[in-house]
Computed example of a mutant assay.
Amino acid sequence: MLRDSAGLSELGKLKDLRGELKIRNLRYKKEMVSKLNYDGAVLKEKRHLYSLTLHWMRIERENSDAVEESDVIIESMEALQPHSSLKQLFVNGYSGARFASWFHSLTNIVNLRLFDCDRCQHLPPLDHLPSLKSLWLSGLMNLEHISEDMVKDFASDEMMMMSAASPSTTFFPSLEILRLIDCPNLKGWWRNETASASASSFPCLSTLYILNCPNLTSMPLYPNLVTLNLNRSSWDVLPSSFVPSSKLKYLDIRSVGDIEYVPEEGIGNLALLEELEIKDCPNLVSLPDQGMGRLISLQRLHISNCPQLASLPEGIGNLTLLQHLEIRDCPKLASLPEGIGNLTLLQSLRISNFPNLASLPEWMGNLTLLQSLRISNFPNLASLPEWIGNLTLL
């Protein structure tokens, strides 16, 4: 690990450097860039390097010279071009408006993370990198769109020729995991939506996390998604059919303020869904009855802190594989669906904060396989029913 820029020139002597390299406290200095350029390729010849971390020192926004030195900022990254065999690249704290032109040459990159690059306005073209499996974008405060539609702004003439020669290149052909976190100004994938752009889809994407991206309203399709986590972001980012995937198994919706109704026709298509969590949604009014009833593979259901939710769908009684059910902090709920008594495989049940519920339903006594029962904060509950004494809890 190099802890500052001073030792960069020594890297040129380490011809056989391999494994993982971390360079911290990089600075934006004309002298440093000139030195790197004079010494030649510092990292480009190191074909055995597997992982590279580039960590820049921050530029204070009050620095009036930052704009004038924008060329130096970009050149400081250009001078650190790695060998095309690199598998993993982490960039942290880079303050340029755009990234280096050598990103397109990372044809073997598998894992790419861009963190706290808060002045970034443009990303390099990443959608045709053939080996990229994991992409993590976090803290890109000024980024509004991920793709600019035109590679000429970033890539070399060689890259443009490659794109023109292979117009049918698959969109993110190997990407499996995508994380978009703390990008408050991100609006969509493309700056200019076109017919070809809207038809693009991730062929291999299985895991998608969208956290604190409240203005993101459009995404490419993800037909093979298995895990979806939407947190502190807009419901509009999901297609009208909820998610265009019959393979989804894990769905987590949290702190989504603009959701009032879950679409009936969308959620009913998720026949393979095994876990569903809906938390901290202040404006959620109802859940679809028939749609919920078609979640025939659901094993875990968690609904909490939805203050406007006034009822639960009777369709919950059709979830015959359900093993874990938790409903709490939904103060407008006055009753529980009788169909819950038909969930013969239910192993754990947690219900709490039901100020309008005066008694526990008799059907709960049918849940003979319960191993865990937690009941709390029922201010109007006068007594417990006799069937509770018949339950054998492990």
Rank of each mutant, 00 (worst) to 15 (best):
W190G: 06
E69R: 15
L106G: 01
L135G: 01
G291E: 05
D4Q: 10
F354S: 07
L216N: 00
S352G: 12
E45N: 12
G291V: 08
L357W: 02
G365S: 09
L208P: 05
N283C: 06
S359F: 06
G93N: 11
S245W: 08
S147E: 11
E68S: 15
I388T: 15
M364A: 11
I177R: 12
D16M: 10
V110T: 10
T320C: 13
S147N: 07
S348T: 12
N108P: 00
I278T: 01
V67T: 15
V226F: 09
S95N: 08
L123I: 06
K152A: 14
A164W: 08
C330P: 07
M162K: 10
N283G: 02
G19F: 02
N390Y: 15
S101C: 11
N366C: 07
P223F: 00
S200H: 09
A66R: 15
K29G: 03
P130L: 03
L36D: 05
M77H: 05
I375Y: 01
L287W: 03
L123H: 05
Y261E: 11
Q308S: 12
A382F: 05
L345I: 04
M141F: 07
N37D: 11
H83P: 11
N366Q: 07
H55Q: 13
S95E: 13
G317I: 09
I259E: 01
G317M: 13
I146V: 15
L276C: 02
S95V: 01
V91W: 00
N283M: 10
L140Y: 04
S201K: 04
F99A: 15
S200K: 11
I351Q: 03
L49S: 00
L17F: 02
C213T: 03
D16E: 13
E314T: 14
L140M: 12
E176T: 08
V67A: 15
M162N: 06
G188Q: 09
L186E: 08
E176H: 04
L309Y: 00
I316C: 08
D116I: 03
G96A: 15
R328I: 04
G389C: 12
I351A: 04
K29A: 11
K152C: 12
S147Y: 05
C330I: 11
I303M: 08
F103V: 05
I296Q: 11
L112C: 02
D157E: 14
S304T: 09
D71R: 13
P214R: 00
P184K: 06
Q323E: 12
L325Y: 04
R27I: 03
W136T: 11
